[in-house]
Design a protein around this nucleic acid. Structure first.
Length: 751
DNA sequence: TCGAATACTTAGAAACCGGCCT
DNA sequence: AGGCCGGTTTCTAAGTATTCGA
């Protein structure tokens, strides 16, 4: 099968536990494999529906142009590299001609202009192929299908978990649900069936009400006091507010850290009056506990509000959401992702952040830039205020922006993930990743060749790319020292982040990675690498010491420029998307047992998802309640097992009786016992599967990859193929975000 | 010709909420 | 009826990639 060809290739490249000799042989077979793959794909399109076929044809057309471009590029490249490669043959091991290590930022290597950088955004990959079709009938037919589906689903649910309500109630609830779903579906903007805008234009009409500001400071009641050096001390409002931010966090580990405390204290003092400043000179003499207790009591109070109060509050909230939570974009109402301005507080940088604890100031309308259509109703600033600026830039997607004071970075108000603007981009992202599939063999060959380049920067680039591809490392942009936590990605790796073992645990050429990546999440991995990679790493580390860059002649713009020349639209992060999605597809194929029950299939899905999460190093802190909840589950299973034993006994008894005398009643009893046994067995199985799943998931976060890396069409197709309802895999948010994929992917979708 | 600025995606933690159990 | 638990949603920090402008 087509799939196998592809996944096999991938598997060998990936599975680091396998013998490397096998891997080395691989490239020779690759082009062959690819040709076969493509042919199979063609055959496959034979039994696709019209829409698909049209798409396919179009794709091929595009593929052709791309290939032409590729060919041209390759030719040009050969002009440059060709000479080098001849030289390379006898200079391969001649490291003497390679440049000496450089310190990045001081002696930056001049960026080599790519020969034929394919630019001009206008050429950017057009992704929709079927949208130009008129296909109005088709559309309405689709809608009908949708409706049918919608009507069916809740019934299934009913069977799944019967509720303890009266029949009428249940029916009413279901009817309501169906209605709501239908309405939602009818209101959905099926933008993926429309033509794309000219390049750079993000919208033609945009109207919104502006952001919602944080509520004003609510002062402490007089009886709640702050103490300095054991004595009550009355703070003025500005200092009191900031003290409150700290008091709120008192039982958080942050407040025990020196950096956090120092930064807080420094910024707090800036809010103090001269008198306050004179008295309050030592944070350790500050006692916030009374404030802390008060805040806690207040939040408790909030939780214990009466039903009516809660309802009222909810309604009020709803009103705000209704008014400010949506915008009008090209005739469609779209949900805004973050319409509330971030309230003031203490900066909670992740990891060892040098600025943690600093004061995040309150944002005022005077800080806000509004972006909307000229001809739209311009949002009104709150009474007595004005906006910093109102602009009308339809080449960007944000509705409002401001500059945050801690790091001086821009913040934006943008649309929700289910919006056209986000969805289209997401779709495009997966299309680029799918395109990489057709180029990846070539690219891998190229970087392998480059392992022996006589130019240091090309070798470094090749090895970095190898890591990005094989290990799904992030690109690793440069960051300003001292401004953020010390974290790295591929290009910013330093010599102390890797260790080289010519031999380790029976494997040759092992590299041990140990560094903090995004969000200061530790990446730790021991990987056997190709010999050439190993030798190069040794070379890169020569004459360097801790703190020096491993790839001293490489940075992300250089890497991306190179990638751009290999494939239009290709950047370092595409490899993560590509490898994540292709891994999911391959794992699903491997792990799904057609005979398995639905819960077992879901476990397989989660395992496939998990493989991706591990690849991408998506971790989470084990939930605080993990051990407890695990124990609870075990108890539940035990209880069920006991129940099963009981039912078994009863069944035996019933059988015996039925054998002795044959009556209608006894037969019925026997039947019901049999069913009961089956039910318990199923329940136990379900619970056990759940337990396994949870255990395996202790420190792994599946959500990030599901949300950002896995082409949703793979999951949708899998559900269709195996008759698993999509709700079991995707929650409401995900289904909303991926509406485009749910609509277009059939069970034969192939990434 | 860089470093800075800009715009957007990706990330884990925390808050929230609703269903279930006692 | 209330509290607990787990999934969902919200929040905002931290990345990537590209463009801008001194």
């Amino acid at each position: 099968m087509t799939q196998e060809t592809a996944t096999e290739d991938h598997d060998v490249f990936w599975d680091t536990s396998k013998d490397k000799q096998e891997k080395k042989k691989k490239p020779a077979r690759k082009s062959e494999g690819k040709a076969a793959k493509e042919k199979k794909n063609e055959e496959k399109s034979g039994h696709k529906n019209k829409k698909e076929k049209a798409k396919k044809a179009d794709n091929e057309k595009k593929e052709e142009t791309v290939n032409k471009e590729e060919a041209k590029k390759k030719k040009d490249k050969n002009k440059v590299n060709g000479g080098v490669s001849v030289k390379m043959e006898f200079e391969d091991e001649d490291f003497a001609s390679l440049e000496k290590p450089v310190k990045k930022g001081k002696k930056r290597v001049r960026m080599e202009e790519a020969e034929d950088t394919v630019k001009s955004k206008k050429k950017k990959i057009k992704i929709e192929d079927d949208k130009e079709e008129p296909g109005k009938e088709k559309r309405s037919k689709k809608l009908d299908e949708k409706k049918k589906k919608i009507k069916k689903e809740p019934k299934e649910e009913k069977v799944d978990k019967p509720k303890k309500k009266t029949k009428e109630e249940r029916d009413a609830a279901i009817a309501l649900k169906v209605k709501k779903k239908e309405e939602e579906e009818a209101a959905r903007w099926r933008w993926w069936e429309e033509e794309k805008y000219e390049d750079g234009v993000k919208w033609r009409f945009l109207e919104h009400k502006g952001p919602v500001f944080a509520p004003p400071y609510d002062p402490l009641p007089p009886h709640v006091k702050f103490y300095y050096d054991g004595k009550p001390f009355q703070l003025r409002l500005p200092a009191e507010e900031v003290a409150g931010f700290f008091a709120h966090m008192l039982d958080h580990e942050y407040t025990t850290r020196d950096v956090f405390r120092n930064n807080f204290f420094l910024d707090w003092r800036k809010e103090m009056t001269l008198e306050e400043k004179t008295v309050i000179t030592d944070l350790s003499k500050c006692d916030f506990t009374e404030m802390h207790t008060y805040f806690k009591a207040k939040s408790e109070e909030r939780k214990n509000r009466s039903k009516e109060e809660k309802l009222k509050l909810k309604e009020e909230n709803q009103k705000i959401v209704e008014e400010f939570g949506y915008c009008l974009l090209d005739h469609h109402k779209e949900k805004i992702g973050n319409f509330k301005i971030e309230p003031p507080g203490l900066f909670r940088g992740r990891g060892d952040h040098p600025k943690q604890g600093m004061l995040k100031k309150r944002i005022l309308p005077e800080d806000i830039i509004i972006n909307c259509s000229k001809e739209s109703k311009i949002p009104e600033p709150p009474a007595g205020h004005k906006w910093k600026e109102v602009r009308h830039d339809n080449t960007v997607t944000w509705l409002a922006s401001w500059t945050e004071n801690v790091q001086g970075l821009a913040k934006y108000i943008m649309l929700n993930a289910n919006s056209k603007l986000k969805g289209e981009k997401d779709w495009e992202k997966y299309e680029v990743a799918r395109k990489l599939k057709h180029h990846v063999d070539n690219i891998r060959k190229t970087y392998r060749d480059n392992f022996k380049s006589k130019e240091m920067k090309i070798r470094q680039r090749a090895v970095a790319l190898y890591f990005i591809d094989k290990l799904a490392l992030r690109a690793g942009n440069e960051k300003e020292e001292g401004e953020t936590a010390d974290t790295v990605g591929c290009c910013s790796l330093r010599v102390e982040h890797i260790k080289l073992y010519p031999e380790l645990d029976g494997e040759n050429h092992v590299v041990e990675f140990d560094f903090l990546g995004k969000d200061s999440i530790r990446y730790y991995n021991k990987v056997p690498v190709e010999k050439k990679v190993f030798k190069n790493l040794q070379l890169f580390m020569e004459n360097k010491q801790e703190g020096d860059d491993l790839f001293d002649r490489l940075n992300t713009p250089m890497l991306n420029k190179h990638l751009q020349s290999l494939m239009e639209g290709l950047t370092a992060k595409v490899f993560r998307t590509y490898n994540a999605s292709i891994t999911l597809q391959q794992q699903l194929e491997e792990l799904t047992d057609p005979e398995a029950t639905v819960p077992e299939k879901i476990l397989s899905y989660n395992r496939a998802n998990r493989a991706v999460a591990i690849l991408c190093n998506h971790q989470r802190a084990p939930p605080k309640t993990f051990d407890q909840s695990m124990a609870n589950l075990r108890t539940k299973i035990e209880a069920r097992k006991e129940q099963m034993a009981l039912v078994k006994k009863e069944l035996k008894e019933a059988k015996k009786q039925a054998n002795e005398s044959d009556s209608e009643k006894l037969r019925k009893l026997l039947e019901s016992k049999k069913k009961a046994l089956q039910r318990t067995e199923e329940q136990i199985m379900k619970l056990e599967v759940q337990a396994t799943d949870r255990e395996e998931n202790k420190q792994i976060a599946l959500s990030t990859s599901k949300l950002n890396y896995l082409d949703p069409r793979i999951s949708v197709a899998w559900c269709k193929k195996w008759n698993v309802s999509l709700e079991k895999i995707y929650n409401k948010t995900l289904r909303d975000k991926f509406a485009w994929a749910i609509d277009m992917a059939e069970s034969d979708f192939y990434f």
